[in-house]
């Protein structure tokens, strides 16, 4: 494995991890809203969140490219006002990974929140806790296992993301090249040896992720 290959591995792992953290605030908020609140048009939010799961990844990538490109609604603002570029940078990779893996987190977290007995939250309120305190001391701890499971799913999905990433970030060596993009490119180049090395790393990473999640679930089961 060359230095360049290690860079790709390292880059992929940390952007995937960063994306799993980045989606937490919005993801948990959405999951909580879907679990605990009802409002007209709720299905709109549900559909929006499920879109990246259901659309072909390149289609999602195309939508993101339109929105975050330099001439896009959001990208234009970022470029003109903040001199910030998203497309063709590591931020584009982060964006693609986050958007594609968010639905998985939201689904798991929603189920986890729904399984928290609302009675417990009510009692906490009678004991004087405000909404935020109820969330942090009752809802979140009891939903933690499901949420962590969701994060791991999201991380795994982010590790393997391809379609949206190549659209939004391209495959710029040293800057936006992820494991899956690099494997694809090496196959295109005919450099199979290189591709298989990266494939080996992918499999190893997948094993670590799954083993890590099993460990987490086992230890959390032992908590009082």
């Amino acid at each position: 494995m060359t230095a360049a290959e290690w860079q790709i591995v390292w880059f992929t792992a940390w952007v995937a991890a960063l994306s799993s953290l980045a989606i937490l605030p919005a993801g948990l908020a959405a999951a909580w809203l879907l679990a605990r609140r009802d409002w007209p048009g709720k299905s709109v939010l549900e559909t929006l969140i499920s879109l990246p799961l259901v659309l072909p990844p390149v289609a999602t990538g195309l939508i993101l490219l339109q929105l975050f490109g330099r001439r896009g609604a959001i990208g234009g603002f970022l470029h003109d006002r903040l001199d910030l570029d998203v497309v063709f940078t590591w931020r584009g990779v982060l964006l693609a990974l986050s958007v594609m893996s968010m639905p998985l987190l939201v689904r798991s977290a929603r189920v986890a929140f729904e399984e928290v007995d609302p009675r417990l939250e009510q009692i906490a309120r009678t004991l004087g806790a405000g909404n935020l305190r109820v969330f942090y001391t009752i809802t979140l701890p009891l939903a933690a296992r499901g949420i962590i499971g969701g994060m791991i799913l999201a991380f795994a999905r982010a590790l393997g993301e391809f379609g949206a990433t190549i659209m939004v970030a391209g495959n710029i060596p040293g800057r936006t090249s992820t494991l899956s993009l690099a494997i694809y490119q090496n196959v295109q180049l005919g450099d199979d040896a290189h591709a298989f090395r990266l494939l080996g790393v992918s499999v190893a990473l997948a094993f670590i992720a799954v083993w890590g999640s099993e460990l987490l679930l086992r230890t959390s089961r032992q908590k009082p």
């Binding site: 490219l65 330099r70 001439r71 497309v87 063709f88 391209g170």
Partner: peptide, 8 residues
């Protein structure tokens, strides 16, 4: 396309 979209 990259030039057309302004991203390059």
């Amino acid at each position: 396309a990259a030039v057309e979209s302004g991203n390059a």
